[in-house]
Design a protein around this nucleic acid. Structure first.
Lengths: 346, 346
DNA sequence: ATTGACGATGTGTACGTTCACACGCGGTTT
DNA sequence: AAACCGCGTGTGAACGTACACATCGTCAAT
């Protein structure tokens, strides 16, 4: 029984054992056309025997091609980003790329900057940014990144490298749906302050309300969690001066529904609720949640596709948006009579 | 205004501009002790000016230290793994490591093997495996991995490198809770066939039932989704020969609850339901779900801690388990009278 | 005055791979 | 018969860094 080699075999070891030059081995590895089949087989056999694995660092050093796509993300725990990243990973793997991911601890500039620095020193070939905070864009602009990159949120700014679900359109759909059901007093539970999506959804909400000439009220700034939705619900429902809620995401909608139940209110009988995202659980909430579906996986796939085409020499595609889709379930209903809203108002 | 350099500045460029040798720059980068403060400052200034970033590939090549921890994962979309990975990422970043992640497309051996091959060619320093399929362990054993590694599931096999939440204990807690409430006819909705956790939870369930001398029934093999829970519920509830369900995860519990509602059954009045995981939404389900909490973040952090200590020269810690915690909410209740269960039985 | 130690810096070399080029060799063209 | 071509293969760089060692002054100890 052989003792474990202290040094991993390298390309020269393989060459020696196969009785060829290291260059021939290299050709086999990069399946160069001009190589005799018998030689190739011999080399492959040796590679298999000794468990040779080409050293990626050395390869990256000389080619300055790392076959790596960097991913800068924020909270990867959430359903949306997690799904997108998973799709990115799959698409990248299919194209022979791997992922190097870093997430930022907090939204402050220093940690964003250091995360980007870190990624950029990896000599990666492309970069996808999923970090939804506004400051990330400042850092990106400042760095003038040399590799193709794409951000998965619309920054509002024209970076020319963005790909996103049209949050504004989604929010307008959700709001219009409520308006069409006769609701005139609609509350919006938004996401945190400097989140791009939160901002866009809020904007869509306000636009649609404005278009219908309805009273707008200041949205409540939440933190995306069901807990927040619950406590915000308990608070807001003390004054029942609204008949519908548009929540910035499904979790908050779930929490809000919980609060309604605790306050003895029926959803959608007394209060209509719309969420955002369409997480897989939303169809099984009680009641099943009306929400706006974002195709996170598609987003991830298209990000990789765009990057790959840019890597292949094509020009960046500029802004691109995916339209979301309203999924009507059972958490929204027509207002009993328009007067109800009036009666409820203090 | 300078045109963008085609080549990124390297250590020699910095050295030239700072009027020192490249070795001095290297010393600054690795903050070597013996270097004159004024020189260090001059070098640092140049580094900042030209935006020099040390090439990690070159560094990895010569040191064979990549400062990278590999992550092999399965479905990263789920709450559990996503949370663990996030925690791993955070802990790794804190220790100056970054992550290189690959997920396996399917559970087949070839894709597992190629994913591992890929990771192992990265000259990474440590590896954490979150892929819950049994076959992954076969691949790992076969490869006799040289770097410290840890698997985040208990394989049942003694690999000596595993760290996990004690699934069996968690399942026993859940089951015991139902038994203590007087339930004698308990159904188990399990996860997919070759998932390690699914197996362990099933085992715990059966053990506890056996300990209480209760009738055991064949668990239903699901796929973790709320959809499955829902349809399984619709099917099972046609014969109401049970009063409680232990679901393999919270999503299936949600779906099952939905099915109960659709069948006009009250939870927990007619049926008690226990989940597993304690996803953040579980507290806001209708009714709030009794479940078993797994500390996924802790798991991730401890995995990194273990790896780092091993990297520091300490011996691997062997098996290690974290005990989960039963969280009693409102989806479980005492059986009205023990006779009820009997009456319901066909 | 000579030696030694030490602080600060520079010079070779190695890491493992790919790229540009060179080479020998049969077979076809001039 | 000389020149050319393409196939299969080998040789010498180069990528950017860290490590071992060498060098050079300065200052204290002998």
């Amino acid at each position: 029984m052989e003792p474990e080699k202290v040094r991993a075999p390298n390309i020269r070891d393989v060459a020696r054992l196969a009785g060829v030059s290291y260059q021939t081995v290299s050709r086999v590895l990069n399946d160069s056309p001009s190589i005799k089949p018998s030689t190739r087989q011999r080399v492959l056999d040796v590679i298999n025997d000794v468990g040779y694995r080409p050293n990626q660092a050395a390869r990256a050093l000389v080619t300055s091609r790392s076959r790596t796509i960097g991913v800068l993300s924020g909270q990867t725990t959430h359903y949306g980003p997690a799904t997108s990243i998973h799709a990115i990973e799959g698409a990248a793997r299919e194209a022979g790329y791997r992922l190097s991911s870093t997430s930022i601890a907090s939204g402050d500039y220093a940690s964003i900057r250091s995360a980007l620095d870190y990624l950029l020193s990896q000599s990666l070939e492309a970069l996808v940014v999923l970090a939804p905070q506004v400051r990330v864009f400042e850092a990106i602009e400042e760095l003038s990144i040399a590799v193709p990159f794409v951000t998965l949120e619309s920054s509002g700014r024209e970076t020319g490298h963005s790909l996103s679900v049209d949050q504004v359109a989604g929010a307008r759909m959700a709001t219009r749906h409520l308006i069409e059901l006769g609701h005139t007093e609609i509350v919006h539970l938004s996401g945190p302050k400097d989140w791009i999506e939160a901002d866009a959804r809020m904007q869509g909400f306000l636009e649609e309300l404005g278009a219908a000439n309805l009273r707008t009220r200041a949205p409540i700034l939440g933190d995306w969690t069901a807990h927040f939705g619950y406590y915000a619900g308990l608070e807001l429902l003390r004054f029942r001066d609204f008949t519908a809620v548009f929540c910035g995401n499904d979790q908050m909608a779930l929490g809000f529904t919980h609060a309604c139940r605790d306050m003895g209110l029926d959803v959608p009988g007394d209060i209509s609720i719309v969420g955002f995202d369409d997480i897989p659980e939303a169809a099984h909430f009680s009641p099943p949640l009306t929400t706006v579906r974002q195709n996170f996986a598609e987003l991830g796939r298209r990000a990789v596709a765009q990057l790959l085409s840019e890597l292949g020499g094509e020009a960046p595609r500029g802004q691109e948006q995916i339209t979301p889709e309203l999924v009507v379930r059972s958490s929204t209903a027509r207002v009993a009579t328009p007067a109800v809203a009036g009666r409820l108002r203090r």
